[in-house]
Design a protein around this nucleic acid. Structure first.
Lengths: 204, 204, 204, 204
DNA sequence: TATGAATGAGCGTTCATTCAT
DNA sequence: TATGAATGAACGCTCATTCAT
């Protein structure tokens, strides 16, 4: 599990907590973590800055909880896919689909993860970000390599390069994706997979 | 042309200026614009914070000059490609190649652009960021649409989606690309174009 | 009314605000606005510099509130005098008396007004200083001219010169006046009026 | 003599020095001593800020030289008047006239003296400001008292109050007086003396 | 639970001053 | 004589955080 076990000031009402975290996540995603003031979050939540400290230890612990909650859920989905024993092509399809579903559910958290994780990972408490990225790389890169070995992906594929492109396009989508738009996550995933697997030029 | 015409303290030694901007760009790219203190830049440049203000008006004007210099050069390259009258496929190839060349030359500037342009664009002086993005969309999206019309790209392609994927993967590469690595920009561009155009599954 | 309507951090305890403004006014008057540091004001108030910003937006907004409060009260008094329909001599007497009463009540504010208003008036937010000065001139100069026309002031009087002398002596008194001294404001006003109206040489 | 004897960096060209001091005096008078940057003075003089330090030790030494030069000249004039053995009324007339002549010649210096002398007097090197003020008070106050004793001024005159009014109105005139205007210094002095001695109401 | 008021560290910036050239 | 470049101290201000109520 991601995040810190020494759970902070556990407020008696976990719903209020979740509301506040959701508010914080939106502001972090929109303004960036550093540029977001704790006062701004409090404003948005209809309280004073100091009052947030009844619910959370610090601004850092807010973003910590946002990211670790998201990653926990992400890995629940990924692990299910990886345990299913699918072929390389189907695994890629399933991982992409799962990723877009997470973006749909945790858009703000994904955007924060995308923009801030490199900075945050330098802090000890965010060590799980680095761990997660390692597992992430293992899952995607492994699948690509298995696909090349099995002949379902092109033999001349630079798998490390392909991994980076896959990873980046999937997550960066959080910066423009708007839930409730005209495309469902599954539809976007389908189109995306089609581009990546078959290219944008016609196959006759 | 991008950037502000009322150029600040135009010191008669533009070399020092360029050195300092290069230093600043590295720090901005590594730490983020907001998280970068002017003292940190000065440290890195071997001077005191106040001394930077002999050369620049403000922290903002530093990032302004970094970004506008980069965009001016980028558009010089893009415009040449667009004026060449190539077919859609060849245009995409040339734009991608040109982009990776810019990443190679202005890695830090591209990383800053990628991470900060949305925030900065809110400030009047950075209006050219929005202008640039509009032109950018015009160039890529137009080429994709022309390709679909000409039948050189798949008829079922969602061009807006494809544009976003192309744009994002190209620029986000600045966050992992290291100049002087084992792949030249042209080599990376070639592999990337191959993936995007033909997909990662074999065409027999 | 003077001052800015978009009142800043309107804290629900206007007493603390008034205390702090009073402290600030004393320091401004003693050291000059520019030479006064916000740290000095905070010291005098027994707090840290940053803490002042809980109560006020800026150093500028402090002097703004000091001056506009003073001018509002001044004009309340002046308007009453001007509406009373007195003769020119009695109007001058009443305006002088009212002025010394204001000096007695707002010595620091008057001293600041005297020393800094020309500089501050250049800033948009202090436009009311210029307005006030115009009304001021209208009231005094008008009364002097009426007095000359009515024959109660000397026919050879240069009214513009006389206005300047009156204005200057009245307000500059704030720089030496000490409340609680041996002369009441009314007593000083009486002596001053006597000098101005009848001169310092004996009338037999 | 006022000013400091340990004369600073004596530049070989005293004319350039005087030009620079004149420039500095104008800026000090217009913006206030504290608010005036050394860079602004240099701009006005067509040089760089650092270059001023070839001519002067410091910003302080500039204002020092401006004020002491003015006071030396003022006292030359005053002393001549005081040595002339005039009656009280004629002495007042002569002092006022001499004062307006100084304002005419040294408008900027007088304005600086008026606005800044209280602050500057706190610094050791400006001790002569306090001395000068003492002599000043002696001259004016003594004349007024002699006049009351001789019966040429009103017996009920509060001489200290009268002194302050005289002093303030004379000097504060520097803030509105413009050399080359429609009134000569002597004409202004005549009108002013007439007001002060005979009042503004008619003497039949 | 939340507020009002304060802390203290640090930030971007200014500016008088220095000095090698 | 003047410049270009830098210093270093201080300034106005911001902000995460604390805490008595």
């Amino acid at each position: 599990m991601s995040g810190n076990s020494k759970k902070t000031t556990v407020s008696p009402s976990p719903e209020r907590r979740r509301e506040l975290l959701s508010t914080a996540a939106e502001v972090f995603a929109a303004q960036g973590y550093n540029a977001t003031t704790v006062r701004r979050i409090a404003d948005e939540a209809g309280m004073l800055a100091g009052s947030l400290y009844y619910h959370f230890d610090s601004k850092e612990s807010m973003v910590d909880e946002i990211l670790s909650t998201f990653l926990d859920e992400l890995w629940a989905g990924y692990d299910e896919v990886l345990r299913a024993g699918l072929g390389p092509r189907e695994t890629i399809e399933a991982l992409v689909t799962e990723s877009f579903r997470e973006i749909d559910r945790h858009r703000a958290a994904v955007a924060i993860y995308q923009k801030e994780s490199r900075q945050l990972a330098a802090l000890p408490r965010f060590g799980y970000l680095t761990d997660s990225q390692r597992r992430f790389e293992g899952a995607w890169l492994g699948t690509l390599e298995r696909g090349v070995a099995d002949g379902v992906f092109r033999a001349d594929l630079d798998t490390r390069l392909a991994y980076r492109f896959l990873r980046d396009t999937v997550w960066v989508a959080a910066s423009w994706y708007r839930p409730g738009g005209q495309h469902s996550p599954e539809e976007i995933a389908r189109q995306y997979v089609s581009m990546v697997l078959d290219g944008i030029t016609p196959r006759d």
